[in-house]
Amino acid sequence: MQPRLITTLAIPQSGLVTEEEIESVSKLVRIKVADHREHVEKVRDMINFFDMLDSAGVEDDELVMDDVPVSRLREDAHESFGGLSGYVRQYRDGYVRVPKMD
């Protein structure tokens, strides 16, 4: 059975998100996507759902953030972790090898 809530919060289908946009964002977050169409519809649905935020009336609201005094922070002292060999992939002399930059 479908809870009533889901229907009351039904989302506007503006469909403004384009396939190209989604493709360019997936490049931005560096994920190879075999078939963009697989994601386009779902991502579009999700983003359309987020458009609900427009009606929340929070334009003038301010962000509230917790804060701490400087004295709560870590004091400056050296401590050696003792290396990460065995946990980090190392190539030669301890360097990490990476693909060449274009």
Partner: peptide, 8 residues
Amino acid sequence: GPNENVCP
């Protein structure tokens, strides 16, 4: 030495 001054 390379990657000696590192931690998680």
